[in-house]
Every structure is written in C-alpha cells, then in structure tokens.
C-alpha cells in the first residue's frame, strides 16, 4: 500500500467511521443534553481523532512497548464499544443526514456546498504539493515519530531523544503529535508509511469549524449563516488556518465548541451539559497549553457566574472536573510534577 492508500485508510477509519461513531454516541444523549442535532453531530465527529489520540496517550503510558497492532486494536475496541452503546444515536444520526440530503437543494445552502467544494480543492492542491515544512508542525511530527518508535510515553525533565539528539521544546498536550503516531501505527499494520493524513488534519478541522459556525448561525437565519461563515473565513489568518499545516484549526474548533457549550450550560444547566462542557474543555487542553490555561479560566468563570451559595456554585464543577482532567488536564498535572515543569520553567520562545 502506498502513501495515498495509507491516507485513505486513516481518513476512512478515523474521520468517517470513528467520526460517525462519536457523533452517534453524542446524539444518543440528546434527550439529556437537549442540544440541536447538527452542531452536536459536528462536535461529535470532531471528537473522533481526539478520542483516538487520548486512547493512545493512556495506552502508551500504561501499557508501553506493545505492538502497533495492539494499539490499533485498543483504539478500535474503544470505538466498537462506543458504537455498540450509541443506541438511538444511530437513528438520530441517520435522520439528521437524511434531512441534510433533502435540504441540499435549498439555495441558502449553496454557499456552504460551494465553500466545502473550495476546501476540497484546497486539499487536493495542498496535500500532494506541500510536504511538512513549517517549524512547529515538524516538531510535533518528529515527537510523534519518537512515540511511534518507542511505543511509550514517559514523563521526563528534558524531553530529549538520545537516539537522534532531538529535543522536544513543546509545552503542549500530546494530542497533535499523537496524530502522527496514529498514522504511523496504521502504516505499520498495513505495511506503509506517510504523513498525508496527519497533514490533512489542518484542513479537516478548518472545514469542521466552518460547518460548526454555519450550523449555529443557521438556526437564526440561513443567509445570516452564509454571510457569517464567509466573513469568518475571509481574513488572512483564517486562510492560513486552511493552508498552513498546524494544530490551530483543531484547537480553535474545540475552543469554539467549548464556548457554544458554555452558553448552552448556563442557558439551561444540567449535569449532562456540565459533563460535556468539562469533556470539551479537557479535549481543548489536550491539544495546546492555551487550552489548559483557558480551561482554568473556564472553571473560575463557572464558579463566579453561577448563582447561590458556595455549594451551589461548586456543584457544576463536580460534573466538570473529572472529564476535564481525564480528557486532557491531567497531562499538565503530570508534566508539572513529574516531567518538564510545563510553564513553570524557563520557557524558550520560538
């Protein structure tokens, strides 16, 4: 199998199949969440690569040195368990997709389809012509390959690779480097190598972000969604988000989902909503240190803005803290006390 065979295998498995599983699994809780189906499904689909990397993170930390096949089986097993427990979520996902197909001819949807086509064209032009060239993403890529080679994650004072002399200066959670590890693991199983899928993550999340903003604005008005999404994508910074390989589109997609969930949680508080808010905030933290810092601010805001006595103000945290830590926050606790010291060290800015 060649590099593009590996790309389509990783894309089909992770983005499409696992994306459908995580979307269906979130939709399964729609009764309790009472959230609109389309944005919820988009967030669910966006969580699939995150869940994959989280499983690899814990797998390589707690069961180091196992074979590539075993790690792929671990991730697939977790996804299988989610798909089996998604129950009614599958029906809701199918109904939602049918609604989208039926409404595809609505003129107010044409800008979205045209924009999506433009994103596909960008992907088709970019992926074969632009290798990994930029500094930060190469650092993530090298660290991901170190994880792939060692099949282990340890916490060390200096993240130095004695075999090559590489020193990982990154402060952030390992979700993005582990994307490279995941593609490498699949590659080892199918007998191929490449990084096209890891590079495509940039474009994938930029598109999901556009879809998320569109789906939220469309609830107010279809043309508002068209104008809003266009206005969001036109600035140079967003265009770079699409064409410069980096973790930013992944990070900002999750941040936007956290913000939408924060609004939802305060509009109609429920344990399910606080749980999902904590999970999304943890996922955001697992991608980047800024997510961890903003996660801390989020906790503070929830306590300050909630009404009632101190017990009432802390109650949402009972639901939020566990998922926030497990989904990504724990990494920074471990890195601070057992590893590099995270931001509590002399930071080198690049």
């Amino acid at each position: 199998m060649g590099e593009w065979g590996l790309f389509w295998t990783a894309f089909g498995l992770t983005n499409v199949l696992f994306g459908a599983v995580t979307a269906a699994w979130l939709l399964r809780w729609q009764d309790r969440l009472s959230l609109p189906a389309v944005p919820l499904a988009i967030v669910g689909a966006g969580l699939a690569p995150f869940v994959v990397t989280l499983m690899l993170y814990y797998g390589m930390m707690l069961l180091p040195g196992t074979s590539a096949l075993a790690y792929v089986a671990l991730v697939t097993g977790v996804m299988l368990a989610l798909s089996l427990t998604a129950g009614e979520g599958w029906g809701r996902l199918a109904a939602m997709l049918r609604r989208i197909v039926r409404g595809a001819s609505d003129p107010a949807m044409w800008p979205f389809w045209l924009g999506s086509l433009a994103v596909v064209v960008i992907a088709v032009l970019l992926l074969p012509n632009k290798p990994l060239v930029d500094h930060d993403v190469l650092e993530y890529g090298v660290q991901g390959r170190v994880f792939l080679r060692d099949k282990a994650i340890h916490f060390v004072r200096h993240r130095f690779d004695p075999a090559t002399g590489f020193y990982y200066v990154g402060l952030h959670g390992f979700s993005f480097p582990l994307m490279f590890t995941w593609e490498g693991l699949i590659g080892e199983v199918v007998g191929s190598a490449g990084d096209a899928w890891s590079r495509s993550i940039t474009i994938w999340y930029a598109w999901l972000l556009i879809a998320l903003v569109w789906s939220v604005l469309r609830r107010a008005s279809p043309w508002l969604a068209a104008a809003g999404a266009l206005t969001m994508t036109l600035p140079l910074g967003f265009l770079f988000l699409l064409v410069v390989y980096h973790l930013d589109s992944y990070r900002i997609f999750l941040f936007s989902a956290v913000m939408a969930m924060l609004v939802a949680a305060f509009r109609s508080p429920s344990p399910a909503r606080w749980l999902l808010l904590g999970t999304l905030a943890g996922a955001h933290a697992f991608v980047h240190s800024l997510g961890a810092i903003l996660g801390g601010i989020l906790v503070l805001v929830v306590v300050l803005v909630s009404s009632g006595g101190i017990g009432d103000r802390l109650r949402p945290l009972l639901w939020m803290i566990g998922p926030l830590l497990l989904a990504g926050g724990l990494h920074y606790v471990l890195d601070t006390f057992l590893g590099t010291g995270w931001i509590f060290k002399d930071i080198i800015w690049f």
């Binding site: 972000l209 998320l212 903003v213 206005t231 910074g237 967003f238 988000l241 900002i252 941040f255």
Partner: peptide
C-alpha cells in the same frame, strides 16, 4: 485568532 469565530 482563537476568538475570531466566537466574535463573528
């Protein structure tokens, strides 16, 4: 840029 989609 993190806040741009939220502001829009």
């Amino acid at each position: 840029l993190t806040f741009e989609p939220l502001f829009v």
